[in-house]
Computed example of a mutant assay.
Amino acid sequence: MSALLEVKGLRRDYGALRAVDDVTFQLEAGSILGFIGPNGAGKSTTLRILATLDSPTSGEVLLGGHSLVDTPDRVRPLIGYMPDRYGTYDDVTVYEFLDFFARAYGLTGAKRRQRVDAVMGFTGLGPLADKLTTALSKGMRQRVALGRTLLHDPKLLLLDEPADGLDPRARIELRELLRALADQGKAVIISSHILTELAEICDTCAIIEQGRLLATGKVGDILQQGTSVTAVELSVRFAVGTDADAVWSRAERLLLEQPRVSRVSREADSLRVGLELEPGAEVKPQDAAAALLAVLVTAGLPVCAFGPRERNLEDAFMTVTKGRLA
């Protein structure tokens, strides 16, 4: 399958500052790509170029085989762009807001009304049609912004920090909407510096820092980078009561005394334990983990969960960027 979007050697300089440096990747229709990086990494600049709101210093971007650089007017109808900050208008209802932008996109008559109604139905905004946009919650305003982005039925969606500031329920609802859009065949790029919110929705990801793309590919492949058969990470949880701090501290000390434990750190509700095995050693990872569990139980610590710790996008980001950039 040929890629819907092809980004080749993209570069953007602002005087002496190189904001985007030789970024290259592809995206197929029906895929969601997580554009991952810290603030200032070049995510928004890249998205603005892809939205034809900025011009690259060099490089090429093809959307559906057409150049964004040479023929921006031809590809703009294929793009839906949702910036990280957007405004609403005073004394305008949700329906009036979407209807205004539908007119701006050139939709007229019955087609415009049908499209606005369809977008409101898809985003769940129908019950709020007559409500002022300024009276909406953050999550509902995000839905309105997404609805505006969808009015002209674009093939490529560019969403810059779409879940920023949303409560957990609104994040889940937004995630479901984006997955539904991908299932419709749209290509979606979501930029974020909050990696956990991307892990459950994206099937591909691109890691960028200081303008340089350090890794791109399927999420599963990215998560495997830096893993080793001689290094194992475990997650340990304890049933604790009023003496929680004492239990955690005692467990940390005991674990660090074990010969194969390389590090112990406390996470939200568990201990993250790193095991290092010697290359070629006869001890298998599962046997080393079992021995460690026996030590904890024998010491009388109230272990309630013990097992391998799954890598996430934060781990992958730290692995990919470690030692790569000064």
Rank of each mutant, 00 (worst) to 15 (best):
L151T: 07
L151K: 05
H152N: 09
D153M: 03
P154Y: 01
P154N: 13
P154T: 14
P154R: 06
K155P: 02
K155M: 10
K155T: 10
L157I: 12
L157R: 02
L157G: 05
L158Q: 05
L158R: 02
L159A: 08
D160Q: 06
D160S: 06
D160Y: 01
E161G: 04
P162G: 09
P162D: 13
P162N: 11
P162A: 13
A163M: 08
A163L: 04
D164R: 01
D164L: 08
G165M: 11
G165D: 10
G165N: 07
L166Y: 03
L166N: 02
D167W: 05
D167G: 09
D167K: 06
D167H: 04
P168I: 12
P168Q: 06
P168C: 09
P168V: 14
P168R: 05
R169H: 03
R169T: 10
R169P: 01
A170T: 06
A170L: 03
A170F: 01
R171D: 03
R171N: 04
R171I: 13
I172C: 05
L174Q: 02
L174D: 07
L174W: 00
L174Y: 01
R175D: 13
E176L: 05
L177I: 11
L177N: 12
L177A: 13
L178R: 00
L178E: 09
L178I: 11
L178S: 03
L178M: 10
R179G: 06
R179P: 01
R179H: 05
A180G: 08
A180F: 07
L181S: 08
L181E: 15
D183M: 14
Q184C: 12
Q184P: 00
Q184M: 15
Q184W: 08
Q184D: 14
G185W: 09
K186I: 11
A187F: 09
A187S: 14
A187T: 13
A187W: 07
V188C: 10
V188M: 09
I189M: 11
I189Q: 06
I189R: 00
I190R: 02
I190E: 09
I190A: 11
S191R: 11
S191Q: 13
S192G: 11
H193Q: 15
H193L: 14
I194F: 07
L195S: 00
T196C: 03
